[in-house]
């Protein structure tokens, strides 16, 4: 498929030889930069808010320079919980480890308020030179997921000895909030010590299920998943897809052979991260994954809008709660 796309690019290059390309003036409204907010409210954890600003796509300068216009002393971040404002404290700016040449970093705000299930939250953020941005979300009520059994199964191909299948039997309770979504993702936490260094890493895998719960969407729960070819998707499904109040289903994933890793002297444990998320996070999650995956075929792919629920700005203010469930392997 990559070769095919390169060939299409070659063909269009040939067409390009008979055509011409020129720089044109942007003929639309040059929209002003807006505030960009990202925050996920988790029940039981202090609320963090990351603030940056967008950059008009034709502005001079590297793409990373869309943070520097924000001065912490000049901005205002207000958090309302169930209609009442709560104080926020601690403003800090942290460099991003993967963007080494980033002169500035997004502003991080943290509140002492710890959200609880059912809380209605509202953020209002303003900075000089930008329109005021606001967003609302509600912390979802969690539901229960139980791991009934985990059975390793050998992989009989070239991956023998490195990977294993792990077959799970799970029981999920249908949540009280019909607008909720759930995500299940297996992780491997892996620690090893070499000389004086201790490394701690996480690996995540795709969980798949062919059970009735996901009928009509193919073997992956979210039909969007069928568009994606990377492994950046956890099992996502709506609360409304759970057919009964308590539903047992099977799932499996292929991950590193944990016994092999332990034999090498490492500490390794599998766990599931079970996330109850509201619709805002679900839309953001899936649209971001779609945008990331389709960029390699940009000219042949439909444009993807990344979800935003911020009025007067961009970004996502959403809520979720996660539980780590040890698989006991």
């Amino acid at each position: 498929m990559k070769r095919l796309s390169r060939l299409f690019i070659l063909l269009f290059t040939v067409v390009g030889l008979a055509s011409c390309s020129k720089e044109i003036k942007f003929n639309g409204d040059e929209s002003e930069s807006k505030l960009v907010i990202y925050s996920v409210a988790r029940a039981g954890e202090p609320l963090q808010v990351e603030v940056s600003h967008s950059a008009f796509f034709l502005k001079s300068g590297p793409i990373e320079n869309y943070i520097g216009a924000l001065k912490p002393d000049e901005g205002s971040v207000k958090l309302f919980v169930n209609g009442s404002m709560v104080p926020y404290v601690l403003v800090r700016r942290e460099p991003q480890p993967d963007i080494t040449d980033l002169p500035d970093a997004p502003l991080f705000y943290e509140s002492t308020y710890v959200p609880a299930e059912g809380d209605r939250l509202r953020l209002v953020i303003s900075f000089p030179g930008f329109d005021e941005a606001s967003a609302e979300t509600q912390v979802p009520y969690c539901t229960e997921l139980t791991v009934n059994s985990v059975t390793p199964r050998a992989v009989n191909d070239e991956y023998t000895g490195l990977y294993h299948y792990y077959d799970l039997t799970l029981t999920i309770n249908r949540g009280s909030d019909p607008s909720c979504y759930y995500g299940i993702r297996p992780y491997l936490h892996f620690e090893y010590t070499y000389a004086e260094f201790t490394a701690s890493e996480y690996y995540s895998w795709n969980l798949e299920s062919d059970d009735f719960l996901f009928q009509g969407n193919g073997s992956m729960t979210d039909q969007l998943s069928q568009l994606l070819s990377n492994d950046d998707v956890s099992m996502l499904f709506a609360n409304t897809k759970i057919p009964s109040s308590s539903y047992t289903f099977r799932g499996s994933f292929m991950g590193y052979d944990i016994d092999l890793m332990r034999a090498e002297g490492a500490t390794a444990n599998y766990f599931l991260v079970f996330t109850t998320m509201n619709r805002d996070l679900y839309y953001y999650r899936t649209s971001h994954a779609t945008a990331s995956n389709s960029s390699s075929f940009s000219i042949f792919s439909e444009a993807t809008s990344i979800y935003s629920n911020v009025k007067g700005g961009y970004g996502c203010f959403c809520a979720a709660s996660s539980k780590k469930i040890a698989l006991g392997l």
């Binding site: 967008s54 796509f57 995500g183 996660s322």
Partner: peptide, 11 residues
């Protein structure tokens, strides 16, 4: 517009 759009990880 270009924005900083973080990746969401369940963990």
């Amino acid at each position: 517009q270009n924005v900083l759009a973080p990746y969401y990880d369940e963990n």
